[in-house]
C-alpha cells in the first residue's frame, strides 16, 4: 500500500537496510538473552514451573473450563449486544423525538461508564436486589458487556445507515415505501451487512473485557489461571499461557473480521467497517486508500 511513498531501495539502500536488520537483530537477540538470564536468576525458568503451567492437568482442569466460561459469556454478550444495538440504533434514527432523545441518552450513558464500574455495580445489585438471578457473577459480566458493547453497536447501526448513499432511501421512497418501511427493508439490512465485520471486531473487545470478570470471581480464563497459579506458585508461567490463548483467539477473530469485510463489501452499498477493536466505531475513511 505504501509503494507510492518510496522507491524500491537500490543497492546502497538495500545494503543499509540489511545492515540495519542485522544490527537490530543483534539488539533483539541481546535483549532476549538478558531477559532469559534475569528470569533464570529469579528461578523462573525452573522446568517444574513451566510443566505445571502447560501439562494436561492445567489444560483439562483450569484453562479449558475457564476458556469455556469466557466463550459462553462472550457469546451471550455478543448476541445481546447486537439486539441491544439494533434496538437503540434504530431508536436513535426514529422520527419520534422522544424515542430519539431517550435512545441517545441510554447509548451515551453506557458508552461513557467504564465496564469495570458497571460490573462491580451489577454484581452487588444482583446479589442484593435480584436474588432470583441464578449465576450472579456470570449475569453481571454478561449484562455489563451487553450494555457497553450494545451501545457501541447502536452507534455502528446509526452511522451505518447514515453512511449509505442517499440514493438508497430516495429510491425506496420513490417506489412508495414509507420512511419506516424503507428503514426496515432497504437501509437496515445493508447497514447490518456493512457493520458485520465491525461486530466481529467488537467480539474481540467482548472477549478481552470478559477478563475483567476475574475481579468479581467469575470463573473465566484469567480467574482459572490465577487459581492454578496459587497452587503451583507459577503466576508468570500460567499468565503467559493465558495471554497466548487470548492473543491467538482474538487474532483469529480479527482475521475473520477482515476477510468478512472484503467478502461482504459486494453485498451492501455502504462501506464495510472493520473497526479497530478498541471498542469504539472508527469513522470510515471516505477517501479511497492511496494506491
Amino acid at each position: 500500500m505504501s509503494s507510492v511513498l518510496f522507491d524500491s531501495p537500490g543497492p546502497r539502500g538495500r545494503r543499509l537496510v540489511m545492515f540495519g536488520n542485522v544490527a537490530s537483530g543483534v539488539v533483539v537477540a541481546g535483549v532476549v538473552v538478558f531477559v532469559l538470564v534475569v528470569l533464570a536468576q529469579q528461578g523462573q525458568l525452573d522446568p517444574a514451573l513451566w510443566v505445571a503451567a502447560l501439562d494436561g492437568r492445567a489444560w483439562q482442569f483450569y484453562y479449558l473450563p475457564g476458556l469455556q466460561n469466557t466463550l459462553r459469556a462472550a457469546a451471550f454478550a455478543t448476541v445481546g449486544a447486537v439486539a441491544f444495538g439494533v434496538l437503540f440504533g434504530v431508536g436513535r434514527l426514529s422520527l419520534n423525538p422522544l424515542v430519539r432523545v431517550l435512545s441517545g441518552v441510554v447509548v451515551e450513558f453506557f458508552r461513557a461508564v467504564p465496564v469495570l464500574l458497571m460490573m462491580f455495580f451489577l454484581w452487588v445489585f444482583f446479589s442484593r436486589q435480584l436474588t432470583w438471578v441464578p449465576d450472579r457473577p456470570y449475569a453481571a459480566v454478561v449484562v455489563a458487556l451487553v450494555l457497553y458493547n450494545g451501545s457501541v453497536i447502536a452507534e455502528l447501526v446509526r452511522s451505518g445507515v447514515r453512511n449509505l448513499p442517499r440514493g438508497q432511501s430516495e429510491a425506496a421512497l420513490a417506489v412508495g415505501l414509507t420512511g419506516a418501511q424503507s428503514l426496515r427493508s432497504v437501509l437496515l439490512p445493508q447497514a447490518l451487512v456493512a457493520m458485520l465485520p465491525a461486530v466481529i471486531s467488537q467480539l474481540v473487545v467482548v472477549l478481552k473485557d470478559s477478563a475483567l470478570g476475574t475481579l468479581i470471581a467469575y470463573p473465566e480464563l484469567l480467574r482459572a489461571t490465577q487459581i492454578l497459579a496459587s497452587g503451583e506458585q507459577n503466576p508468570l508461567q500460567a499468565l503467559t499461557v493465558a495471554a497466548l490463548v487470548f492473543i491467538v483467539l482474538n487474532w483469529l477473530l480479527s482475521v475473520l473480521a477482515h476477510r468478512l469485510s472484503l467478502t461482504l463489501s459486494s453485498r451492501t452499498s455502504g462501506k464495510t467497517v472493520e473497526g479497530v477493536g478498541i471498542g469504539n466505531p472508527v469513522a470510515a475513511p471516505v477517501v479511497p486508500e492511496p494506491h
Binding site: V204, K208, D209, A211, L212, T214, L222, L239, A242, A243, F246, I247, L249, N250, W251, S254, V276, G277, I278
Partner: peptide, 11 residues
Amino acid sequence: VNVIRNTPLTV
C-alpha cells in the same frame, strides 16, 4: 499491533 491489541489490558 497484533499482539498488543489482542491481549486483555488486565494481563
